[in-house]
Design a protein around this nucleic acid. Structure first.
Lengths: 337, 337
DNA sequence: CTCCTGGACTTAAAGGTTTTCGGAAACGTA
DNA sequence: TACGTTTCCGAAAACCTTTAAGTCCAGGAG
């Protein structure tokens, strides 16, 4: 713990060669006799030599490090994206510098400067919601990729879940199960996610030539709101046979209240949630059919794209990543799933 | 994006001074005339100069960067610890290199080497459970602090939640509410957390001269097990008036089944959970009284301790961090909370 | 006038690594 | 012997910043 770390100089002296030769031997380059290479490698092992990445980066201009800037990692959605990205980078021998701006713009600027000063090779910005956010990439000397929350600037590179397509897929599944009166409970309309999911519902119903059962009910993304909305919906539209919910929390609340009101799920009413938050979706009774946004995969893809952008060229624009419908008991008769 | 980044050399030329003077001006040191300093600062702003942290680190031997090594960040417990640590470091102008070993020992070694090669000033190791884990700090040239999951080596520095104390606090709360027949449902006994919490229960009951109601029931940390255990408990010990659960998931399952069996919570049976996982603890009906391990604060404390260890001296040993009892409706009569 | 002091600035070294280029030795050919 | 080629190795520059040491000059004291 106290001893100075070994440098390539120490290795070279111990092996009895120059530092140039030591470097070549350690990096597996030509122009070194096999016996000499062996001696150098032995010396390096003896001293447990670790090349100094700072010196290397200073010379090459590449740090093999990327910055991960999150606006609000407390949120449930940023974490899986972050893990996916970390996974992709780890596999590529890259290191990840994590910064959490906590939703504060000046803290974000501060972190940005710190990352640039550390000469990161690239940057991933993870949003807290799918609402577009101000671009950070004006005149930055490194490529930037946005994940989950896209940049407002369409010439930036962004990866977002395909909420519209996923919602349409969920509703089509309900229609395929023979349902015809589909209602919609969702979150606040100032969330683009809520608007997109409603849009997907609208498209799917229009294609099938059906009308929505009642009005879309918007409220907080909470189980409590799901229960409350259930009361309102069952009162206003007693004959509804399917409900598409904008989140698993809302769906869990709906299922609970529907059961208390004597409606059987899925026999009387089929329910689809959103997010596949497993503590809710697998523990409600019946377990929820729900949309999984594949966030970890989204993070991985964003990271891989950042690789590409660092090497050569990026493909700008907003890339919509496909989601996946996880079918459980809340839409299929028990025993079928 | 394409232009080479400005160095202090460029700043110096533009300001018409030597690089030494530029350096002194930028770092606010003495021996620079006010007018000269102003000229240098203007030049730096003009070129949007950012000092190269690599060169600085190479010279000073301090990178102002720490490694955060997590065994399994998918887990629910690592995340808050990580966030707390990131928070503390961010405030101190430190940067955090995030590595996720995904429970794989050789991947952990790999990350460890990468971090050392990047010359981190210190290391935080975040465990996936409170079970002691193999030490990583044998002959490491930097200080290491373990958070959540302690090191097996007692001469290392570890920060863990005080599960024994918290469990005793929870049980004392039940006793203070007049309960006398306290049962215990918890997770698998190969988790130290489960054993510690049972130990806390035992101590509190012994101090009050009471016997536990029935045997401790161990099973998975799941809501499903909570429901199943509830059936068993209510059959075996019909007169139980309080249940201390080893997790909120188990508590949520218990509450659900107890209500279906016609027991009122908290009137007939008071319930305490563990973890304060809000999606469960605030959404069960009634909302759960539960133990909050203050994980974010634990992470922050670990980070601050790492600071201290980097500067001067560390205080080795396992530090037990206090938890907090969050009192909600499941232990107090409705309307009181 | 000389000497000293201190302020303002510059020179040069150091930190660890990679890479380019040149040098030396060994060997084969004329 | 003279010369060209191959193989292996070393010297030195470069990356960017900080800092110790040195230079130069003006002004004050004697």
């Amino acid at each position: 713990m106290a001893t100075r770390r070994a440098t390539i100089n120490d290795v070279a002296s111990l092996a009895g060669v120059s530092i140039a030769t030591a470097s070549k031997a350690l990096n597996g380059r030509q122009d070194v006799r096999a016996a000499t290479r062996e001696r150098v490698l032995a010396a390096a092992a003896e001293l447990s030599f670790q090349p100094n990445a700072l010196a290397r980066g200073l010379l090459s201009g590449q740090t093999r490090t990327v910055g991960l800037l999150t606006s609000d990692s407390v949120g449930r959605f940023g974490i899986p994206v972050l893990l996916g990205a970390e996974d992709a980078f780890g596999a590529g021998e890259m290191a990840v510098l994590l910064c959490d701006a906590r939703g504060d713009a000046i803290r974000e600027q501060h972190h940005l400067r710190a990352l640039l000063s550390r000469r990161v090779d690239g940057l991933i910005v993870v949003g807290e919601s799918t609402n577009p956010r101000p671009s950070v990439s004006k005149d930055l000397p490194v490529p930037v990729v946005y994940a989950y929350g896209p940049s407002e600037d369409p010439s930036d590179v962004s990866f977002v879940p395909d909420d519209v397509g996923a919602a349409a897929m969920a509703v089509n599944h309900l229609l395929a199960m023979g349902r015809r009166k589909v209602a919609h409970l969702t979150g606040p309309t100032h969330y683009k996610a809520a608007r997109d999911r409603e849009e997907g519902l609208r498209l799917a119903l229009a294609e099938a030539g059906l009308a929505q059962a009642g009005q879309t009910l918007s409220g907080p993304w909470s189980q409590r709101w799901g229960r409350h909305a259930a009361e309102m919906l069952l009162m206003a539209e007693p004959h509804v046979d399917a409900v598409f919910c904008g989140s698993d929390q809302i769906a869990a609340g709906f299922v609970e209240t529907a059961r208390e009101r004597g409606r059987r799920v899925p026999d009387d009413i089929a329910v689809v949630g959103y997010d596949n938050w497993e503590v809710l979706s697998t523990e409600t009774r019946p377990a929820l059919t729900t949309v999984d946004m594949n966030l970890e995969s989204l993070g991985r893809t964003a990271a891989q794209h950042l690789f590409a952008a660092i090497d050569g060229k990026a493909t700008p624009g907003v890339h919509k990543m496909p989601c996946q419908l996880v079918i459980r008991d809340s839409t299929s008769p028990p025993g079928v799933s």
